[in-house]
Amino acid sequence: MPALGIAIVHQYERGVVFRLGRVRGVRDPGWCWMIPLADHMRKVSLRTVTLPIQGQQVITRDNVSIGVAAVAYYRRTDPVKSIVEVESVETAINQIAQTTVRNVVGRSKLDQVLSETETLNADIQRVLDVTAERWGVVVQLVELKDIELPQAMQRAMAREAEAEREKRAKIIAAEGEALSAGKLAEAADVIVEHPVALQLRNLQILSEIAVEKNSTIVFPAQFIESVRAIERYVDAEAAAAHRNGASAAGR
């Protein structure tokens, strides 16, 4: 159909018309007239392009060699520039993306690469966008999708994480012991003032053990001494009540 002077441009395309080698304009979607033999149209897609950035070895700022792969999304916004300013947009974006990823990751430490991925993505996108603007391209998004660590580094990080968990567990256990010791001290003060409380606690423990009905309970000598202490306490209380009653009667 171009030989007949008619060209059809799809909705997602724009047609750049060259007349005798010079740009004569951009055609919108639909059909358009062209001068046979004089006009030549190159169609440019405005759809978003997914560009995988192949993995490459990068040495971080703290001298750790890692493998990094990424993916970029871009689209053409200026059909004329995307044809006139660069020979192949796809190749140019791919090469500059690989270089930018290597440079940005190489300026960062390993901890930053692992924990601040969003910041690195934004830095890579900003550098690519400035360069690609001259080619009529907008880089919409860049994502680091695969970070490979050496086996030795993975084992070291696993040991570090395990040590950190053990440290937190010991701190929590120590805090629990300190809290428990304080409560036991308070309970001991109460028991000293009220010996019956110790007996009640012993009876409570025996009651809990007896629920299972499969245990043999042995009363230690301390239990007998506790019973005697209770008897002395009851006798002392009865004597004090008797003395108080006698004093009241004498009055």
Score class of each variant (00 low, 15 high):
151 Q>R: 05
86 V>N: 11
63 N>P: 03
69 A>Y: 00
216 T>L: 05
44 V>F: 00
232 R>L: 14
74 Y>K: 09
158 A>V: 05
43 K>I: 10
146 D>H: 12
92 A>N: 01
224 I>C: 07
241 A>D: 14
122 A>K: 09
90 E>F: 14
64 V>N: 11
209 I>V: 02
43 K>C: 01
30 G>L: 11
208 E>M: 00
28 D>Q: 09
231 E>W: 06
249 A>S: 06
61 R>F: 12
67 G>W: 10
242 H>I: 15
205 I>H: 00
44 V>G: 00
49 V>S: 04
78 D>Y: 07
35 I>C: 06
234 V>H: 09
88 S>W: 11
209 I>Q: 05
27 R>E: 03
196 V>W: 15
148 E>V: 01
61 R>G: 08
147 I>W: 05
2 P>F: 13
44 V>Y: 02
180 S>N: 08
126 R>T: 05
208 E>T: 00
120 L>Y: 00
117 T>W: 06
81 K>G: 02
61 R>C: 14
105 V>W: 02
3 A>F: 09
24 R>S: 01
193 E>M: 15
142 V>I: 09
121 N>W: 07
93 I>A: 01
89 V>A: 12
186 E>V: 13
85 E>W: 13
238 A>N: 06
161 A>N: 14
229 A>W: 09
178 A>S: 15
247 S>M: 08
205 I>M: 00
78 D>G: 01
204 Q>I: 01
97 A>V: 02
115 S>M: 14
204 Q>N: 09
103 N>R: 15
73 Y>M: 07
112 Q>N: 04
91 T>A: 15
173 A>W: 10
221 A>L: 08
9 V>I: 13
9 V>T: 07
64 V>I: 04
26 V>N: 02
54 Q>R: 14
107 R>H: 07
26 V>G: 00
169 A>H: 09
182 G>I: 13
58 V>E: 11
39 D>P: 01
139 V>N: 00
137 V>F: 13
183 K>P: 11
39 D>C: 09
165 R>W: 09
69 A>M: 05
14 R>Q: 02
199 Q>A: 11
47 R>A: 12
241 A>W: 14
195 P>V: 06
90 E>G: 08
80 V>S: 05
40 H>V: 13
223 F>Y: 10
184 L>Q: 13
185 A>R: 15
1 M>E: 01
114 L>W: 03
150 P>C: 13
3 A>S: 14
136 G>V: 03
117 T>V: 13
69 A>S: 10
136 G>S: 11
168 R>S: 03
55 G>K: 01
7 A>N: 04
158 A>W: 07
71 V>Y: 02
118 E>G: 06
140 Q>W: 14
101 V>Q: 05
122 A>N: 01
1 M>K: 09
235 D>V: 11
231 E>T: 11
1 M>G: 05
181 A>W: 10
89 V>N: 04
180 S>I: 12
